[in-house]
Design a protein around this nucleic acid. Structure first.
Lengths: 227, 227
DNA sequence: TATCAATAAATTGCTAACAATTTTGGATTG
DNA sequence: CAATCCAAAATTGTTAGCAATTTATTGATA
């Protein structure tokens, strides 16, 4: 792909991913190519490869052969696996971040916290969601392992979709207090405590989710009632 | 993508990935579309998307805009990050696998070990490489977390490429003795020991690699001398 | 009214031809 | 002889248009 088209595909991916992650496109929403072409002012080929990538790389889109694309509806099993995997990586990230604490990195962390509190004060829901995800990205970047960072980025995206699908009380995100406590522990280089807080933080998020066995599969019912 | 073309792309990806992982296509090898079309008897469009995916998902191919694709040459930094990430996931996998030990799973592990010893006896280098990677996949599947399994699959692939690029003494793979010891610890549900052995196992592999700082970037020199 | 079949419309899938870019291999010149 | 330039070849990038499939509509029938 030539660099121009590549950027265009990335642009489309970003637009779609943001919309999904920020819960403006609910799970199950049909994503017809023609409509996306119209709305995004894009070439259909570019739209197609963006959808393909969102499906195969990020798994926030599902493509039904000959029937088009939808915002994905991860199963409960998948949701749990994503959380479990995420905890594994987040724990490692916390440890590495503590090892890598420079003055510059301390600053980045504090600035990120400011952004988050700012977003909460403004009451901009989308920005709150975005920044609360960015907090975890910043940690991963401080950790300095690009592979872990990229893996985590994917899992954060998927987590956001899972929250949109399975959260009982809407609008609950990462609590800023927990991020604050985590930062305190990290800045104090208290590895055990930081790891513990990260575990609890993830558990808190999961606690607000409806991930009971039930049918054990997709929540077809809930979606059908909705539409 | 319709299911037919999708399968074809997957076929091409598998062929290429196997060749790279089994060190038949050394790092840096140019992958011209026309040649691949000829050799694989495939459509150029299919070849192109296979290359794109191998580049963006698995990172075992690098695409230079307007200049085609090569087998990737990960930097030393990337190699280290892949190993570090892999250890993080492998540790988690070992723990989960122990939690999930059914009779069926015990059997799978033992069968996998047999396959590996079989491959060693036959002296088939490619099969040895393949099966020694499969060992880790089997563990991940026993662990039962599909997300971790998929992440690990990617990292195993990348590890194999890294070994091809940075191993000083050729042909050193995972040692079967270490796999055997690991299985013993897992079957005994000795989590601490299993985790420890996995750590050591990864370190052993890394020990045979030339991942010193040197220029800190690509090993242009080594490659130029080679070709 | 419900069911089914036939047809039309909408949507996705595929490819062949064309465009753009880079590389190659002289030919020319100082 | 090295450097520069230019055209041809090779290679990759792009797209428009058609093919195939699915979905919606219509209308006939019981």
């Amino acid at each position: 792909m030539g660099t121009r088209a590549q950027l265009e595909v990335k642009r489309i991916m970003d637009r779609l991913a943001s919309a999904i992650v920020e819960h403006r496109l609910p799970p199950g929403t049909r994503l017809t190519e023609a409509k996306l072409v119209e709305v995004l002012g894009a070439n259909r080929n570019h739209v197609r490869s963006a959808l393909q990538k969102l499906a195969s790389e990020y798994k926030v889109v599902t493509i039904f052969p000959n029937r088009g694309a939808c915002v994905a509806q991860p199963t409960i099993k998948e949701a749990r696996d994503v959380f479990a995997a995420r905890i594994v990586i987040e724990r490692a990230v916390v440890e590495l971040a503590i090892d890598n604490l420079t003055a510059k990195n301390r600053n980045r962390l504090l600035k990120q916290l400011e952004k988050e509190t700012g977003a909460i004060k403004c009451g901009e829901r989308q920005e709150m969601i975005r920044e609360s995800g960015n907090f975890h990205r910043v940690l991963a970047q401080i950790a300095g392992n690009e592979v872990l960072d990229e893996l985590l980025a994917g899992l954060i995206t998927r987590t956001s979709l899972i929250i949109a699908l399975y959260q009982e009380t809407p609008n609950v995100q990462c609590s800023i207090e927990e991020h604050q406590a985590l930062v305190d522990a990290i800045l104090a280089k208290d590895c055990d405590r930081a790891r513990y807080l990260m575990d609890e933080h993830m558990k808190t998020i999961q606690r607000y989710l409806l991930l009971d066995e039930r049918s054990g599969d997709v929540d077809l019912q809930a979606v059908l009632e909705e539409s």
